[in-house]
Amino acid sequence: MAGFFDTLFGGGAEREAAEKNRALAAQYQTSALDYLKTGYGTGTDAINKGVAAYDPLAALGVKYSAAGDTWLNALGVNGADGSARATQAFQTTPGYELTQRAALDAIDRRRAIGGMYASGNADQDTANWITKNLYETQYQPWMSGLQSAAGMGGQYTAGAAQGQQQGYTSLADLARNYGLDQSNVANNYMGQNVSANNMQAAGEAAGAKNLLGAGLSLAGMAFGGGGGGMLSSLGGMFGGGGSTLNSSPWSFPMATAGGNWGRPQVSYG
């Protein structure tokens, strides 16, 4: 604790208060930044989990969107190579071979009944029937399924993208707010230190004024004022034009009548 004279002339009380305020401001800054960091970490973890929850939907969108590529190939959009890939994909569907075998078996039975095994017309009829049957029962539904799957793939992809975008937007907002909060803490800390510095400076300035005022008062007591100053006291020790110092029982003749100083004569009594 500052002493009396340090407080009076050196701004000691204000300096101690300013130092305490600086210490409290530093503690506030450390605690506030720790709290903000913890909150930011918790927030980012939660948002990232929310974004990750859309991953299965995004993966499903990728799978369904692959049907869209095959559909476009079947439409001839991607050229001859694309069409060939679409044909190969269709021929590998589970219903393609099953339908073809069933159609052939049915035709063979009909031909056997009619005795038309070697007939060219029967072979053409078989080919036409298989083509018509495959197209109507397999290819058209297959194309419709590809189109539907492509649309679902787009919906799944869009839904996942929208959800993830919202999560990333929340992350960006959280990061921006985190930066603003850190800036506010820094501004508060700076403001507290500025106030502490001003307090200390004001105390030291007041102490300097007190010291100056005390010095002037001492000077006034020494050199005049109220008829009782030191110089007045000294002047009273000399006679008003006299030639002896009468402040003691000793007498000291100081000058002759002609104004010349003579040898001092000391007498007592």
Rank of each mutant, 00 (worst) to 15 (best):
K132G: 08
N133P: 02
L134M: 06
L134E: 03
Y135S: 14
Y135R: 15
T137Q: 12
T137K: 11
T137V: 11
Q138H: 06
Y139L: 15
Q140N: 14
Q140K: 15
P141Q: 03
P141L: 11
W142R: 02
W142C: 04
M143H: 06
S144C: 13
S144K: 15
S144T: 13
S144H: 13
S144Q: 15
Q147N: 14
S148K: 12
A149T: 06
A149G: 01
A150L: 06
A150W: 10
G151Y: 08
G151K: 15
G151H: 11
G153S: 00
G154N: 07
G154W: 08
Q155K: 14
Q155M: 04
Q155F: 10
Y156G: 00
Y156T: 02
Y156D: 02
A158C: 04
G159L: 14
G159T: 10
G159Q: 14
A161T: 11
Q164T: 04
Q164C: 01
Q166K: 12
Q166F: 09
G167N: 03
T169A: 12
S170F: 08
L171T: 03
L171P: 00
L171S: 05
A172Q: 02
D173C: 01
D173P: 01
A175Q: 15
N177T: 09
N177D: 14
Y178V: 04
G179S: 11
L180D: 15
D181I: 02
D181N: 14
M190E: 15
M190G: 09
G191F: 10
Q192P: 06
V194E: 09
V194R: 14
S195H: 07
A196Q: 00
A196E: 00
N197Y: 11
N198S: 12
M199E: 06
A201P: 00
A202C: 04
A202W: 08
A202S: 11
A202Q: 09
E204M: 13
A206F: 00
N210S: 00
N210P: 01
L211K: 05
L212V: 12
G213T: 13
L216W: 09
L218E: 05
A219N: 10
G220Y: 06
M221Y: 09
A222D: 05
A222K: 06
G224R: 01
G224M: 03
G226S: 09
G227E: 01
G228I: 13
M230K: 06
M230A: 06
L231A: 05
S233M: 12
G236W: 05
M237G: 05
F238H: 00
G239M: 10
G239F: 08
G240D: 14
G241R: 00
G242I: 03
S243D: 09
S243E: 05
L245Q: 00
L245I: 07
N246I: 10
S247K: 12
S247R: 13
P249Y: 12
P249G: 11
P249R: 14
S251R: 10
P253A: 05
M254N: 11
A255L: 12
T256E: 03
T256H: 05
